[in-house]
Design a protein around this nucleic acid. Structure first.
Lengths: 215, 215
DNA sequence: CGATCGGTTGAGTCATCTCAACAGAGGTGG
DNA sequence: CCACCTCTGTTGAGATGACTCAACCGATCG
């Protein structure tokens, strides 16, 4: 028997993994800035955001912080395929999370289908991290912020986009300072590429130009 | 039946995946700077470095380049668990590579053990990329170069370490310019943390101090 | 022996960071 | 209802780390 299926990764189809967590997971509620799991904690569960939003972060000994990813309702996190978590996960605002122990995971449609779903989720994760490498290694500040806004708009629908994260979170995600993020947002707004309604809600006014700036 | 095994990831034990590729793979030879696979190529094979060294790279439309990872003899690459490659792979010097079509992959000790090996390899990959995020997002030039030398020394044994990559490759790996890399190397050498014998061979003179500088 | 390639070094510039002041929103208490 | 505080975000001025541009150097090759 071939093991090709261990790689083959049909991008279509329903997300069986999220289904399984919805069916069997336990609901947990986290307050703003509460830790969901710590860096180096044993990775024993998988998590699904029901409401609110989550960030994964890593700290250096002197306090410098890197945000790896943001997670929204409907998205899975905590999928690292190994014994320990590399990043901590924290709620960015009040959040409902479904938690399922990996040991309790089983699929209605059989394990093979579920394993395929796990691989698909892992792949999405790897793709995002790799795109992030390019952003952090080779893009300038304006390109980073444009990439960020573009991605958020794409992930959250095209109308008004709500940002659940603080400027500090954005800065630590993009490898910049809050001041640089703030200035860059102001400049993008002055160029009429985006329009902010209050601090944490925006609308893209020119998707093409924004994507172009994102490089 | 539980699917815990789909995550459980025993870090010990022989590398069955590399074993399988050694047993069944076809030998291919690549010249310096020759492409092994292109970005967006279908991911149909897995690869094992026999001799030489390999880099994975991604280009932006204006030519900016990011190197994701370097691979040495004994290491597997091309493991992206999906339909397409996110980065291209290129030989950095003359290299012998064992190539195995994923469809032909099968394990002497059964598929379960082999699948576990695939997950372990994927995890190693993810860990490295995540460490790289921290480096690119939050470390200064001297810390990046120190991290790089530290990692290379750890991966290649403790004596004299041969660097198969050019300064440009190092710069694109660390998100810096060749000039900054060069200056930083000179400074590290003047501080007696490392000692270079020629351009591409070095020895760590003070592992502790180097690791400390790497932050 | 000149050309080329990869690497180093120097001088000056620029993007981003640092430090600091300021501003609006929201909460609290008198 | 207002004074006050805190929290988050914006803006400005100046400092600086890394980049750009350019010269130079040694090794390799035809």
């Amino acid at each position: 028997m071939s093991l090709a299926h261990a790689f083959d990764n049909d991008p279509t189809g329903p997300d069986l993994l999220a289904e399984a967590v919805r069916r069997q997971g336990l609901r947990a509620v986290f307050a703003k800035n509460q830790e969901i799991y710590a860096q180096a904690d044993a990775a024993t569960c998988i998590y699904l955001v029901v409401s609110g939003a989550v960030r994964t972060v890593r700290l250096m000994s002197d306090g410098r912080r890197q945000v790896a990813e943001f997670y929204y309702p409907g998205e899975l996190f905590g999928l690292e395929p190994g014994p320990g978590h590399d990043f901590a996960a924290e709620a960015m605002c009040g959040a409902q999370i479904l938690v399922l122990r990996r040991a309790d995971l089983s699929g209605a449609d059989g394990d093979a289908a579920l394993e395929s779903a796990i691989r698909r989720a892992t792949r999405r994760e790897l793709e995002r991290v790799q795109a992030h490498l390019m952003l952090l290694g080779r893009k300038r500040a304006s390109e980073r912020v444009a990439s960020f806004l573009s991605e958020m708009a794409a992930r959250r629908g095209d109308g008004a986009v709500e940002l659940p994260m603080s400027r500090q979170d954005i800065a630590d995600y993009l490898g910049l300072t809050i001041e640089t993020v703030s200035r860059t947002l102001t400049r993008l707004q002055n160029s009429n590429l985006v329009e902010f309604k209050g601090w944490r809600q925006f609308r893209v006014r020119n998707h093409v130009a924004l994507a172009c700036l994102a490089a």
